[in-house]
Design a protein around this nucleic acid. Structure first.
Lengths: 159, 159
DNA sequence: ATAATACATGAGCATATCTTCAGATATTGT
DNA sequence: ACAATATCTGAAGATATGCTCATGTATTAT
């Protein structure tokens, strides 16, 4: 299974962040220090030499920073709520005002407003005023398509 | 900006769920009922005729079900934590045992174990036992690549 | 200006999440 | 079998999240 999370932000956006790479192309280990690291032992043991220092040294500089992980987590967090997904799903159909959204998603208007604020904060939606109503839509320069094939994954029995 | 969230689960996986569609291709409105729906008024008013019944009728049957939204939200939720993202990021480099992961991600071993359980529950990682150690890796048939270009989106000043 | 409407926002409560701590389970070496 | 080690798991506390309720703000109609 391939999990590609591809957030294309603007027409001209450079790839900013790469969480993982198929068959990691960096095999340059930073010359092992003077620590015996499981040359003959099967399971080196976590306690013997701190841990598998070899692996740790190799992997640690490559993993995502805490700050970036935090940002990404927040972004994913906005997609991690059924109500918000339903709102996005509705807006994907067409522009809607708050009370329409509330009716469509079967939520209270206040709840909708709160969630729209979250979506706004991640710039997933935009809005325009028309009289008393405020019409929301997917941030046109941002979200256009959102495909997911999650359900089968979820239904799939554990291997 | 285009937001494509594309979760490809198995080599042969049908598209299971489509949250939104670019320029929604379903323009067949289900023949408006006998409700005056803003034929002449600019802003129909949320209260006058319930809401914009036209819009609601059109959009409501298209939005994602609560159950599916719930499943998707849970899946996104597993990606909505910095620690888990960092663990995935590390495992994307290579197979690692729990204490290695703890060292790499600078987390407690118990915390790592807890989070690995979450990742396991979404089948994002697999594991194998080798002596006392349990080596985790990205679920080979599942997660292979995870690209993200989130940071620029996040840095981008609000329009 | 005043009332009414659509939406936003803050407080408060219920629930969920993440980490730590303590203890349980499983595997290895003696 | 027993001790040691790696990992797992449950409980508890701190924090975050999402909803409702009440109130605040902006726009329209009178």
């Amino acid at each position: 299974m391939i999990l590609i999370l591809w957030l294309k932000l603007k027409a001209s956006t450079t790839i900013l962040f790469r969480l993982s790479t198929f068959s990691a192309p960096h095999m340059n280990k930073p010359r092992l220090p003077k620590t015996k690291v499981s040359p003959s032992v099967d399971a080196p043991g976590c306690d013997d030499y701190l841990v598998n220092l070899e692996n740790v040294r190799q992997v640690q500089p490559e993993i995502v920073s805490i700050e970036k992980a935090q940002q990404m987590a927040e972004f994913f967090g906005t997609l991690a709520d059924p109500s918000r997904l339903r709102l996005l799903s509705a807006l994907a159909q067409q522009e809607l005002c708050v009370c329409d959204l509330a009716a469509v998603a079967k939520m209270g208007e206040s709840a909708v407003s709160h969630q729209l604020r979250v979506l706004r904060s991640q710039r997933l939606v935009k809005y325009r005023r028309e009289g008393r109503n405020i019409y929301y839509s997917l941030a046109d320069s941002h979200v256009m398509n959102l495909y997911a094939e999650v359900a089968e994954h979820l239904d799939e029995p554990a291997t």
